[in-house]
Amino acid sequence: MLDDRARMEAAKKEKVEQILAEFQLQEEDLKKVMRRMQKEMDRGLRLETHEEASVKMLPTYVRSTPEGSEVGDFLSLDLGGTNFRVMLVKVGEGEEGQWSVKTKHQMYSIPEDAMTGTAEMLFDYISECISDFLDKHQMKHKKLPLGFTFSFPVRHEDIDKGILLNWTKGFKASGAEGNNVVGLLRDAIKRRGDFEMDVVAMVNDTVATMISCYYEDHQCEVGMIVGTGCNACYMEEMQNVELVEGDEGRMCVNTEWGAFGDSGELDEFLLEYDRLVDESSANPGQQLYEKLIGGKYMGELVRLVLLRLVDENLLFHGEASEQLRTRGAFETRFVSQVESDTGDRKQIYNILSTLGLRPSTTDCDIVRRACESVSTRAAHMCSAGLAGVINRMRESRSEDVMRITVGVDGSVYKLHPSFKERFHASVRRLTPSCEITFIESEEGSGRGAALVSAVACKKACMLGQ
């Protein structure tokens, strides 16, 4: 009897593995994704193909990295998701002549009506938060230079001027797309009239992360975010950046690689679950690469896999709870928690219980395998993109072996128990001629924006502006 049951459990697990095998990517698959990513990057950089390229390769006008001589107080704003952060950054000489960066910050959550109302409502709310922060720190009387981390696709015309191309991540505030974001912020500050600010720089969160990590390690020339969304930036040779005049030196390019796949480059790798996630998203047909990796989508992918296993009578005796059938019910943090389970399955059992399920031991094991399959594919897909960037940098610099540091931020990278190990191992397999160091950014977005502002202020002083 026991043997029969054991055989049935083994057969069930084997069927589960057959279904989950769809998520496995072979090294040849990853090399294919990497080569296609490089081709799209090239198209994004070139003037004649930029418009139709899915990977936009947006110039950021960040050319210099901090040298350690900029000092002063800077205000930093960070808008990239449902939370908005205001930070005071003091850049100065530390002990023994070292450079020191001290920060104080406060988080504000953005109400739904500000995210989806008008641009005026959104930026009025942001300036209200700045006003509140300055009151708390008794700094209303000071006109501070301000660095703005704005983590949406922007076409820069200068370091302090950028046109919002399109909202992502659930934002829909009308009247912002096609307009200068810094102008919208300046107008809102003017409307309030109770404080003055000098907006000197606007950067993407990947750029802010790279600059913040450069402060720790001067070989950091790539910034990457794996959180709600997924994106990367890197220092490109100016001669390859056709959208900006000049051939000397390097400029940081914001790849906006989340949109890779929007022209069909990933079609052969998309599964039924991916198509369902895409169809029910706020932007169907867009940001397809990001939807395979980002935390906004990972939990939902797992939920759809679990429903398939229920329908195949391989999980929960073929019956799903009402909660499990509800879109968004299986949160991405559950994926991390399930994979963090120590082996007694308590954590998995508790999560499934909150979803109205009474799982068996085998159910718990199957749910864990589903989570591992989805998150491992995410790590491997992400590795193909980064390997594409790094191999490109090595080739354009004609280096036999390139040493490089990548600064990384984002909740999936930082909080998932195995993502970074799987990701690092896969990147290294795909970049055999590179020695890569990964560092995690601390308060990256805010500190990085302030350091970019410090560079901009120093330049302005040198130019006598």
Rank of each mutant, 00 (worst) to 15 (best):
D3G: 12
D4Y: 01
D4M: 03
E9P: 11
A10H: 09
A10Y: 06
K12L: 12
K13E: 13
E14I: 05
L20V: 06
A21W: 15
Q24E: 14
Q26D: 08
E27F: 02
L30G: 00
R36Q: 12
M37P: 00
Q38T: 01
K39Q: 11
M41E: 01
M41H: 00
M41Y: 10
G44Y: 00
R46K: 08
R46W: 00
R46N: 06
L47R: 10
T49S: 05
H50Q: 14
H50W: 09
E52P: 02
E52V: 07
A53G: 04
K56Y: 01
M57F: 02
L58N: 12
P59E: 15
P59H: 06
Y61F: 15
Y61P: 07
E67T: 15
S69Q: 03
E70P: 07
E70L: 02
V71N: 15
V71R: 10
F74G: 05
L75D: 05
L75R: 02
S76Q: 07
D78H: 15
F84Q: 02
M87P: 05
M87A: 07
M87D: 04
V89Q: 03
V89P: 01
V89Y: 04
K90G: 10
V91G: 08
G92E: 08
G94V: 11
W99A: 09
H105C: 09
Y108H: 03
S109G: 08
I110K: 00
I110R: 02
E112T: 09
D113C: 13
D113A: 13
M115G: 12
E120Y: 15
M121G: 10
L122A: 11
F123N: 04
Y125I: 09
Y125F: 15
E128T: 15
I130H: 00
I130L: 09
I130K: 00
L134G: 02
K136H: 04
H137V: 09
H137N: 00
Q138G: 12
M139R: 03
H141Y: 12
H141S: 09
H141I: 04
K142V: 13
L146E: 04
F148C: 13
F148Q: 06
S151E: 11
F152I: 12
P153W: 06
R155M: 07
H156V: 10
E157G: 12
E157K: 12
G162N: 09
I163N: 14
L164C: 14
L165I: 14
T168N: 12
E177I: 11
N179Y: 15
V182G: 08
L184P: 07
L185T: 07
R186C: 05
R186G: 10
A188Q: 03
I189E: 02
D194G: 09
F195N: 03
E196M: 12
V199I: 06
V203H: 07
N204E: 08
D205C: 04
D205L: 04
D205P: 13
T206Y: 01
V207H: 02
V207P: 09
T209W: 07
T209K: 02
M210A: 01
I211C: 01
I211V: 09
Y215C: 11
E216P: 02
H218A: 13
Q219T: 10
C220N: 02
E221Y: 03
E221L: 05
E221C: 05
V226E: 00
M235C: 00
M238N: 03
Q239F: 08
N240F: 13
E242H: 13
E245I: 12
E245P: 08
G246R: 04
G246K: 03
E248S: 13
R250Y: 15
M251Y: 03
C252L: 02
E256I: 03
W257A: 00
G261E: 01
S263W: 02
L266D: 00
D267K: 04
E268W: 03
L270S: 12
E272L: 08
Y273R: 00
R275M: 09
D278R: 00
E279H: 13
S280N: 15
S281G: 08
G285S: 09
G285H: 03
Q286T: 14
Q287R: 10
E290L: 08
L292E: 00
I293D: 01
I293M: 14
G295T: 08
Y297V: 12
V302T: 07
R303V: 01
V305T: 08
L306C: 12
E312N: 14
N313I: 07
L314A: 07
G318V: 06
S321F: 08
E322Q: 14
E322A: 13
Q323I: 10
L324N: 01
T326I: 09
R327W: 12
R327P: 10
G328A: 14
G328M: 12
A329I: 14
E331K: 15
E331W: 08
E331H: 15
T332M: 12
R333D: 13
F334K: 15
F334P: 01
V335Q: 06
Q337V: 08
V338G: 04
V338P: 01
G343Y: 02
R345T: 14
Q347S: 09
I348Q: 05
S353F: 10
T354A: 06
L355H: 01
L357D: 08
R358D: 08
T361V: 05
D363P: 00
V367W: 01
V367T: 10
V367C: 08
R368Q: 12
R368L: 12
R369A: 10
R369V: 07
S373H: 07
S373R: 09
S375R: 01
T376D: 03
R377Y: 01
A379D: 01
A379G: 10
H380S: 10
A387K: 01
A387T: 02
I390A: 11
S396C: 12
R397D: 04
S398Q: 03
E399Y: 13
D400M: 09
V401W: 11
R403I: 13
T405R: 08
G407E: 01
G407N: 01
V408A: 11
V408D: 04
S411T: 15
S411E: 10
V412P: 03
Y413K: 01
K414V: 03
H416Q: 05
H416W: 11
P417F: 04
S418F: 12
S418W: 14
K420Q: 12
E421D: 11
H424P: 02
H424A: 12
A425P: 02
V427G: 01
R428N: 10
R429D: 12
L430D: 01
T431E: 06
T431V: 10
T437K: 14
F438Q: 00
E440C: 11
E440H: 09
S441H: 06
E442L: 08
E442P: 11
E443K: 00
G444N: 08
R447Q: 13
A449S: 11
A449G: 13
A450C: 09
L451T: 06
V452I: 15
K458L: 05
Q465C: 12
